[in-house]
Write a protein that binds this DNA or RNA. Structure first.
Lengths: 338, 338
DNA sequence: AAAGTTGTTGAAATCGATTACAAATTGCTG
DNA sequence: CAGCAATTTGTAATCGATTTCAACAACTTT
C-alpha cells in the first residue's frame, strides 16, 4: 500500500523510467542497476498499480465470460477451460451470469465499451447474430461458444446442432420409436431452429410423419422440461414414446414428470438429452445424451482469442467446429417392437 | 471508441468537470446544461473509460472470488449468490480457480496488492488463518466463506463443522452402525480437524470405540474418495459398515468402490456426504448429505462486504454462522440390527 | 446601489504507471 | 585523444477520467 514507482526509483537512485523498464523486462538496463532496482522493489514491498498500467497501455488483460447460468455444468466446464487457459496466458476472467436474459447479456457487453475488459466471450448467447455483428464491427473483440456465427470478426467454436440432432432422432427411430417428441430450449432461438432441422431431417430419412403437437419448449430448465412434458402428454393423449430434450436439465424434468405419471423409462418412454451433465451418468436410469468437449472448447477458443489480440495472428482460422458424440445409455436402450 | 470526455465537453460547450458531474449525478448542475450534456453524450455515443475512473477514484468495484474448483456445485452455487448480489450492487466478479493449490490462492491474492480488485472472497481456502490475518492487517479487504476465522478484520460466514459432523455420526450410530469410517478432504486442513472433532464427540456420546484405521482422506475429489474407500476396506478387512465422507464428490467415489466390490448401499454400507450437490438427490440410492444454504451464504457475505467497503458500516457483525441440516436419504436409511 | 449569499461553472491538479525523445555515458576507432 | 556510435538513463508527456478551488453570475438584503 502506498508505495509507488517513484518511491522505488528514489530508493534505488534511478528514474521511474528505469524502474519501469526493470519491472517489464525491457532491454537496455545494466545488470547492476537492474539488481539495484530489484532489491529496492523487494525492500519496499512494491506492487505496481495495475489500474494505472491498464490506463497507460490501454489494455486490462481481462476477458468477460457471459453465461446463462453459473450453476449448470455445461457452462461451468466451459468456464473452467477458459479460466485455466486464461491463467496460463496471464489473463483474468470476469464472470457474468445472464440468467437467461438477452437484456442482461447486452448490459454485460457494456464492459467492452467502457474498457473494463479487452474482450468478451458469449456462451450460447441469446442475443442475435446481427446485434453481435454490429458490436464486432464497432471494433470490439467478441467470441462465441456453442453457436456458429457467420461473421469475419467473430471467432466461434461449436458443434453441429443439425448433425447431432439427426443422430439422436435416428437412434430413437432405430430403437423402434415412431412418435418422437422434441423439447427445445427457447422456441425462437437459433439452436432450436437447427435442432429442429436435424429432427425433421431424421423424420424424413426414417419416413416418419411430422406431428407438430409433439414439439414444445421448456427454457432449458428442469422445471420447464417438467411442464413441457406434462403439456405434451396431455396433448398427445399419451401416444408419444420417446422424447428428445434440448438439454439434460430439461430431461431431468421429463424424468420427474414420467415418474409422477407412472411412466417407466425406458420401457414406456425413451429419453435423450444434450450436454452430458455430470448428473446424466449417475441418475437412474442413466441418461442418453450428446457429449461435447466443453472444457476444450473453452480453452481452445480463449487461447485463439488471446493470441489474436496480441497480434500473434489468428492463423486465419476463426471458426472451429468440433465433434460431438451420442452417448447411448439406459434411458433409450429399450427396443420397442413395431 | 475514441470519444472521450473532452469531446463531449466540447460538443456541449461546457468543461469536462461539468460533464463528469452530469455523468455521476453530482448536484449543482442546471437542468438546462444537464440536458445539453446528456444529448451530447447520446449523439457521440460516449462511454466513460472505466479504467481512467478507477485510477482516479482508487476503486475498481471488482471482487475476486477464489474457489478450489469451478466445476463443483458447492462452489458454483456460492459463486452464483455472490455474482447475483454483486450485480445488483454494481460490482463485478473475477473468478479464480485455485485447483486445490494453496500456492495458487496466494497468487490470486496478488490481485489485491496490485489493486485489480477491491476485495477478495475465499471459499473454503487452503491458506491458513495466520496468512490471511497478515494480509488483512496490511489493509486489504478479504472475506471467507465456509470457515470461521477469528479475526476482527475478516468477515466470514460458515456452518458449524463440529456440530453437523456430530449429527451425521450420531445418525449413523442410531441406525445401528458401530464401525463408522471418516473420509476427510485434506487431512491437515482446518475443516478436517473440526469434522474429526465432531466425529469423535459422537463416538464418545454413543460409547463407540475409536478405530484410527477407519480414518482416511481423499482430497475432496471423486477419484480420491474412490481410492480412500479402497484402502479403507483393505485395511479394515471389511468390518466397516458406514462411511462419512467430507463431501458428496468423495461419496460418489465411495459408491463406485462399493459397486465394484459388490457391496450394496445401504444394506452393506451406509454412506453420508456433505454439501448436497445436485447429484446427491438423483443418484441411486439417493445420498444422505448435509445441506448448507450456499447461495445465501455467498449473497449475504458479499453484500456485507460491499456495504462495509462503502462505509455503510458493517453493523459490527462480521461473523455469520448459518445452520446446516442433515438430509437423510436412501444411502443411510437401512437399519442395522445390533 | 453596495454588499453579501447562494448556486453554477471551469481551470488545472491528480491518480500511478509507460514511453518517446533527449541527454549522458561508455566504448571504439583512427 | 578527438570524434562518433552504441548503450544506458532521465525528463516530461501521456492515458482519461474526477475533484478542489477559484471565478463568476444571479439574487437578496439593507
Amino acid at each position: 500500500m502506498d508505495v509507488k514507482i517513484i518511491d522505488v526509483a528514489r530508493a534505488a537512485g534511478v528514474s521511474t523510467a528505469t524502474v519501469s523498464r526493470v519491472l517489464n523486462g525491457s532491454p537496455g538496463v545494466t545488470p547492476k542497476t537492474r539488481s539495484r532496482v530489484e532489491s529496492a522493489v523487494r525492500e519496499l514491498g512494491y506492487h505496481p498499480n495495475a489500474v494505472a498500467k491498464n490506463l497507460r497501455v490501454q489494455k486490462t488483460k481481462t476477458i468477460a465470460v457471459i453465461v446463462q447460468d453459473i450453476n449448470v455444468s455445461y457452462f461451468t466446464e466451459i468456464v473452467k477451460g477458459i479460466e485455466n487457459m486464461a491463467y496460463v496466458k496471464h489473463y483474468k476472467v470476469l464472470i457474468c451470469d445472464s440468467e437467461n436474459q438477452a437484456a442482461k447479456e447486452l448490459e454485460y457487453l457494456n464492459l467492452l465499451m467502457n474498457r473494463t475488459v479487452d474482450a468478451a466471450i458469449l456462451v450460447s448467447p441469446l442475443v442475435g447474430d446481427e446485434q453481435l455483428a454490429e458490436i464486432a464491427e464497432r471494433g470490439y473483440s467478441i467470441a462465441v461458444i456453442g453457436r456458429h456465427i457467420g461473421h469475419e470478426q467473430i471467432p466461434c467454436i461449436y458443434t453441429d446442432n443439425v448433425k447431432f440432432s439427426l443422430e439422436v432422432v435416428r437412434h430413437l427411430a432405430e430403437m423402434g420409436h415412431r412418435d418422437i417428441a422434441f423439447l427445445s430450449g427457447f422456441a425462437d432461438s437459433i439452436d432450436s431452429y437447427e435442432r429442429l432441422e436435424g429432427y425433421m431431417k431424421a423424420l424424413k430419412e426414417q419416413r416418419l410423419p411430422f406431428r407438430p403437437e409433439l414439439i414444445d419448449s421448456g427454457g432449458f430448465s428442469e422445471s420447464g422440461g417438467y411442464e413441457a412434458m406434462g403439456r405434451l402428454l396431455d396433448r398427445s393423449g399419451g401416444s408419444v414414446t420417446a422424447v428428445y430434450a434440448a438439454n439434460d436439465e430439461m430431461a431431468l424434468g421429463v424424468y420427474k414428470c414420467c415418474r409422477e405419471r407412472g411412466l417407466r423409462i425406458p420401457e414406456d418412454i425413451a429419453v435423450v438429452g444434450v450436454d452430458n451433465n455430470r448428473i446424466s451418468k449417475y441418475i437412474s436410469p442413466s441418461l442418453s445424451t450428446v457429449n461435447q468437449p466443453k472444457y476444450t472448447m473453452g480453452a481452445l477458443l480463449v487461447e485463439k482469442l488471446i493470441d489474436s489480440m496480441n497480434e500473434d495472428q489468428f492463423g486465419d482460422k476463426r471458426v472451429f467446429k468440433v465433434d460431438s458424440e451420442l452417448l447411448v445409455r439406459g434411458s433409450s436402450s429399450f427396443r420397442r417392437e413395431g
